[in-house]
Amino acid sequence: MDQRYRSRGMRVFDPTVFENVKVALENHFYDLDNLDRLIDIVGRNDRMEMAVMAREFGLRFTLAGQSGMSAEVRLASSLRQLAAELLNQDGDAAATGAGCSLSLRFRVVISEPADQCRKIEGIMRTIWGDDMPFTQTISYVHGQDSPPEAVFYTNKIELKFNRTIGEEQMEDIPELAEHMLQTLRELKAAAI
C-alpha cells in the first residue's frame, strides 16, 4: 500500500521533528520523575496556536520533594520551521531552518536582587558557559510589602539556544537535563 502512495508522489506520514523531540524530552524527564525520583514534574503544556500554526511544549519541574524554585524546558516550532521541514523532504533540514527552538527557564524567589542576581549570573556562566546568552527578569506583586522590608521578587532566568534543534540533538537530552538539575542544585546551595 505504501508503494501505491509513493508512486503517486504522496508522502507517507512521518511525525514532525517537533513531535519526535517532544516525545524524547517527555520520556527522559518523566523517567527522572517516575523512575529515578530526582524531580517532581509540576506543570506541562502542549499547545497549538491555530492562528499562526505554531506549536509549543513545556515541562516544568522542581527538585524532588522541594518547592520554591523550578526549571522548565520549552520547545517551540513555527509555521516557517514546519514548512521548511515538509517542503525539504530529502534535503538538509538544518540548512533550511527546519526544526524547533529550545529555551530553558528557571524561576527563583529572591529578596535582594542586586546581590542575588550577580550570584545567579556566576552560577549560570559556570554551568552553561559564557557563550550561552541568558536574561534575568525581576518582578514582584504590588501590595505584598507588609512589612515594607519583606518584599520578595520572582526572578525568571531564561536561556535561549541560538540554533534550531532537530532529531540529531536528541542524544544530548540527558546532558541537557543534568545541566538543568545542576543549575537547580547550585541555586539552592547558594541560598538563593
Rank of each mutant, 00 (worst) to 15 (best):
T62I: 06
T62F: 06
T62R: 10
T62D: 15
T62S: 15
L63W: 01
L63S: 06
L63I: 03
L63T: 01
L63F: 00
L63G: 00
L63D: 08
A64I: 06
A64N: 13
A64V: 06
A64H: 15
G65N: 06
G65C: 04
G65Y: 03
G65A: 05
G65I: 02
G65L: 04
Q66D: 07
Q66P: 03
Q66H: 07
Q66L: 08
Q66F: 02
Q66K: 11
Q66T: 03
S67L: 04
S67I: 03
S67E: 12
S67V: 02
S67F: 03
G68P: 10
G68T: 05
G68M: 09
G68S: 10
G68D: 12
G68N: 12
M69H: 15
M69F: 11
M69T: 06
S70M: 09
S70T: 08
A71E: 02
A71H: 03
A71Q: 02
A71F: 02
E72A: 09
E72M: 07
E72D: 02
E72Q: 13
E72G: 01
E72N: 03
V73L: 13
V73Q: 01
V73Y: 01
R74G: 02
R74N: 13
R74C: 07
R74Q: 06
L75V: 06
L75S: 04
L75Y: 03
L75C: 06
L75N: 05
L75W: 03
A76F: 13
A76I: 05
A76Y: 08
A76R: 11
A76L: 10
A76W: 04
S77G: 10
S77C: 13
S77K: 01
S77F: 00
S77Y: 00
S77P: 06
S77D: 07
S77E: 14
S78I: 05
S78A: 10
S78E: 07
S78M: 10
S78T: 14
S78Q: 07
L79T: 01
L79S: 10
L79H: 14
L79E: 11
L79Y: 15
R80N: 14
R80G: 11
R80Y: 05
R80C: 01
R80V: 04
R80D: 10
R80P: 00
R80W: 02
R80F: 06
Q81R: 07
Q81M: 15
Q81E: 11
L82N: 03
L82M: 12
L82W: 07
L82H: 09
L82Y: 08
L82A: 12
A83P: 04
A83W: 04
A83H: 08
A83E: 07
A83Y: 05
A83D: 09
A83T: 08
A83G: 08
A84Q: 06
E85C: 05
E85H: 03
E85G: 03
L86E: 13
L86G: 07
L86M: 13
L86I: 02
L87E: 13
L87H: 14
L87D: 11
L87I: 04
L87P: 05
N88G: 14
N88S: 13
N88F: 01
N88I: 00
N88D: 15
Q89M: 13
Q89L: 14
Q89N: 05
Q89K: 09
Q89C: 10
D90V: 09
D90W: 13
D90Y: 14
D90E: 14
D90T: 07
G91C: 08
G91A: 10
D92C: 10
D92R: 09
D92A: 12
D92L: 11
D92V: 04
D92Q: 12
A93L: 11
A93I: 01
A93V: 02
